[in-house]
Structure formats: structure tokens, C-alpha cells
């Protein structure tokens, strides 16, 4: 695991690099907001397993997330997509593959990549719904009324599940869906009734209050990503 930086149109951000620096490379996009904390060690486990299979990867901090100096409230969906594209350009390889989890699958839409691998993808509306529901539940507990209708721009950022989020980001997410252009493989959990190319046994770590990991599932997914990259190369 090597710390590094990448450049994008709005500045530069940190990224972690795993595995070999030649050959195909995977750029990982974590789930959005609180779900990122709950799945970080799981995603790192997948990237380490990919490294053992000879596939390098990058885990970029997006503007307003991780160690970024940008405030979360200044993050926008187009910033995130441009940063993801910038990360791909910084890596400058021929064969770049996107790996997105949950809301992270919304970020690779504009990047120059050879293929997409989406695990448990959701559309942006589901991300926003989840955030609002958390606020409604917390408000109910505190006895404070919360009005889900007052999130539209313009106006100040809104605090949802511990993040100050711009109204424009919420509005853009509401209409965003994962891109399925080009070679795209969709993986889901067995418990997920929606269609997918492959289903894996496991629990949704992004729902757990305590960050967890699932090494067995991480290996299954890494094997499947490696196989789909091999198919792309063939």
C-alpha cells in the first residue's frame, strides 16, 4: 500500500496504490457518505486480494472525502466524476477498469475506462432516500420535526447522517444512475432481489453501525474482478 496523489481539473487529492505498477489497473470508488466508513476495510481487502492476483489498483480520496482539504459541503457530483476521471488520467495506463460499490458506481460515468465492475449498485435517488430516512429517524427520536421537503436548492448545506451536504449534490444525486456503457459486470448479494450478472453470499456491511469486514466475500469478488479483466483483455 503506497500513498500517492492524483491531479484533476479542480486540484489534487490523495490516493492509495496497491499491487504492481504495470499491467491493468483498477480504480475503486467507495460507497458515499457514512457507508464508506463501514466498507473501507472490506474494499481494501478486495484491493489487496487483487494485488495478490497481479492486478494493481488505486483507491482515490475524492474531493470532500477522506483526507481531502475540500470541505464536504463543497463536494458536487460532477466534481467527484471529474476527480475519478482525473485519477484515471494520472494513472495513464491503457487498461483501466472501474470498480464501484453502492453509490460509488455513480462516479465512473465520464471516465475513460476499459470496463466497469459494479458491486451492489444503487441509483442516486436511493442514496438520498437513505440519508433523509436517517434524519427522519433521528428527528423522531429527539422529538424534533424534520421536513424532508426542504432539501431543494438554493439554500445552505444540510446536515444528514453527520455530513454537511450541499443541496446541489443532493439534487444531482436524485437523478443520477450508474452508467452501463461498455463492458459492465454487475454483482450483488444473494439477498438482493434485483438483477445482476453474479450473486455472492454475504451480509450488507454498509448497513452495520460498526465497521466490519468479510474476507471470504472479498476473495470471491477479487476473483470475479480478475476474471472479468482477463475477459476484457482477451
Amino acid at each position: 500500500m503506497t500513498p500517492s496523489t492524483y491531479r484533476w481539473s479542480g486540484g489534487s487529492e490523495a490516493m492509495l496504490r496497491f499491487g504492481p505498477t504495470t499491467g491493468p489497473v483498477v480504480i475503486a470508488a467507495m460507497p458515499l457518505f457514512e457507508e464508506a466508513n463501514r466498507t473501507r476495510s472490506f474494499i481494501v481487502a478486495i484491493l489487496r486480494a487483487l494485488a495478490e492476483r497481479g492486478i494493481g489498483s488505486a483507491l482515490p480520496d475524492l474531493p470532500g472525502t477522506g483526507d481531502s482539504l475540500t470541505e464536504t459541503e463543497h463536494a458536487t457530483l460532477s466534481n467527484w466524476q471529474e476527480a475519478f476521471s482525473g485519477c484515471a488520467m494520472t494513472l495513464g495506463r491503457d487498461r483501466i477498469h472501474a470498480f464501484g460499490v453502492r453509490g460509488g458506481t455513480l462516479l465512473d460515468a465520464t471516465a475513460a475506462i476499459a470496463s466497469r465492475y459494479h458491486f451492489a449498485p444503487i441509483d442516486g435517488n436511493a442514496v438520498v432516500r437513505d440519508l433523509l430516512r436517517t434524519r427522519l429517524a433521528a428527528a423522531k427520536e429527539d422529538g424534533v420535526p424534520a421536513d424532508a421537503g426542504t432539501i431543494a436548492p438554493p439554500g445552505p448545506p444540510i446536515t444528514l447522517a453527520g455530513n454537511r451536504i450541499s443541496r446541489q449534490l443532493l439534487a444531482d444525486l436524485t437523478v443520477a444512475a450508474p452508467s452501463t456503457v461498455g463492458p459492465c459486470r454487475i454483482a450483488r448479494l444473494d439477498s438482493d432481489g434485483r438483477p445482476g450478472d453474479v450473486k455472492f453470499p454475504g451480509a450488507p456491511l454498509w448497513r452495520r453501525a460498526e465497521p466490519g469486514n468479510d474476507p471470504a466475500l472479498a476473495v470471491l469478488i477479487a476473483d470475479d474482478i480478475a476474471a472479468s479483466i482477463a475477459t476484457c483483455a482477451a
Partner: peptide, 13 residues
Amino acid sequence: ELDSMAVAGLLTE
């Protein structure tokens, strides 16, 4: 384990 945040996740799941 079932606090208000978990209720939100429970309903969505």
C-alpha cells in the same frame, strides 16, 4: 442494537 439509525437501515433493507 436497534437505535434510530439502525431503524433507518432496517427499513431500507
